[in-house]
Design a protein around this nucleic acid. Structure first.
Lengths: 249, 249
DNA sequence: ATTTGAAAGTGTTAATTTGACACAAAGCAC
DNA sequence: GTGCTTTGTGTCAAATTAACACTTTCAAAT
């Protein structure tokens, strides 16, 4: 485990620190997560997009870079979840043999720093990159096995998302620019994982003044078309400046 | 820092990952933080207790160990704040020259994982260890300079403490077993950094059933003696089991 | 043309919670 | 006993929450 650490060398991977990203998307019905397939013929569980950092790179920057390299997603705002540092977090046989192939020092002890983000699924149609075989959206509730300790990371991401949405109305990142209150309602139910009364939800969300109604309705839906709404960035900024911090339900 | 605990793998420091601890205490008036003095004759700013991790050690465990080595505090429950990974987080000249003395590879890039905890000040009377010159309680509001990026870490710890107390009644960790409602009240004001109405505070805290009144009063105070209270662990557990999650003010 | 299915949209009421506010009681020190 | 300091207590108006059901509008199927 000897290392030649040269700080000024530009692109040198740090063998001890990686980043992993939990990217949530919403398909108007349930939450999905972006995972990459490490398949190599044998069946090996999927993983969260992640990789080692460079030595001269900010952690946050590394997460952005790695995410782009593995999925093509650019300029995503990532929020840190935390560090995962069990010395045995890479102990499954399938993980170790996979690492043999892709890493210079597969035996090094790696701690990982996890990030999460919320993206509009419409903005991203998965497409393979050079490194991973493919990235794909998988419904959160169908994910039962992942590489390394990624199930743990995913659980932490869910917890944090649930908590965060009561503090900042981050949910809007998961919806297209124009959305209906019904979609927003379903999103909150998906994140908080509990049913919520429709009328009470609407009343509350409208009183916050975070959405502005457009002069436009849904088209082509086989039922009464909904009014369309947009997130009101201006009012959000104003609210935050007054120290407001409870968007909770 | 002299331990002969050898497992199969020899104890080897990981040059790239450290842990730092923010330990809060409450002196019935304001919050304090435990810092270690790195003084070496020249004047060098204090630091949070922290050090490199061992390669075969869980991050959480490393934080517990380092805290004990540097301050003597044992068996403290530490909660993770997050990872700090600016590649230039160790750029001040005073920090670098200090590292020359205490580290084998002072030029390595180090990311740090920060933890925080709340302790009863009565439980801990600072006493020097072999490594640091001394550890001391410093009023939070008097801390204006720290080594490395420790001011940033401290700010994050404050934010997290403020947030956390609305989700779990962690404040009780900062008080002695028996305390008065006045003390608890002051604690909340210190953490949330805002004045709170006395009667409303008492009403709310009592309705939560988290404190049970003892048949005992303060002695020797030069004013009307207060009823003493204890944290009601039982009711807390019950509340948590029903999924309760709002202890907020 | 009519029916059907599916989601949108809408208001009231009772219960609970919040915020604002002021004064008497109890102990110690002098 | 006077003065100082902190404890301890209740009410009311305003705001917020939770519970609850039916009509409207469209497309698709018949």
């Amino acid at each position: 485990m000897k290392q030649e650490i040269k700080k000024n060398t530009p692109l040198e991977l740090n063998p001890n620190v990686s980043v992993d990203c939990v990217i949530f998307g919403f398909d108007f019905d349930k939450l999905n997560v972006l995972v990459i397939d490490r398949a190599d013929g044998t069946s090996v569980p999927c993983a969260l997009p992640g990789n080692l950092i460079y030595n001269n790179e900010h952690l946050d920057q590394a997460a952005i870079r790695v995410l782009e390299e593995l999925t093509g997603l650019k300029n995503i705002y990532l929020e840190q979840i935390g560090a995962f540092g069990d010395p045995n977090r890479i102990s499954k046989a399938s993980d170790q043999s996979w690492l043999q192939k892709v890493r210079a020092q597969p035996e090094a002890r790696v701690i990982t720093v996890a990030y999460f983000s919320l993206v509009k699924m419409e903005d991203y149609v998965p497409q393979a990159s050079s490194f991973a075989k493919s990235a794909a959206w998988i419904p959160l509730n169908n994910i039962h096995e992942l590489a390394f300790d990624h199930m743990e990371i995913l659980a932490a991401a869910k917890r944090q998302l649930k908590q965060m949405i009561n503090i900042r109305p981050i949910g809007f990142n998961l919806l297209p620019e124009k959305f209906t209150l019904g979609q927003l309602h379903k999103l909150y139910e998906a994140i908080l994982d509990k049913p919520m009364d429709k009328r009470n939800f609407r009343r509350k969300i409208q009183k916050l003044n975070l959405v502005k109604s457009l002069e436009e309705k849904q088209l082509g839906v086989p039922h009464k078309p909904s009014q369309l709404f947009m997130f009101d960035e201006n009012n959000y900024q104003k609210l935050m400046q007054t120290g407001f911090n409870n968007f909770g339900f």
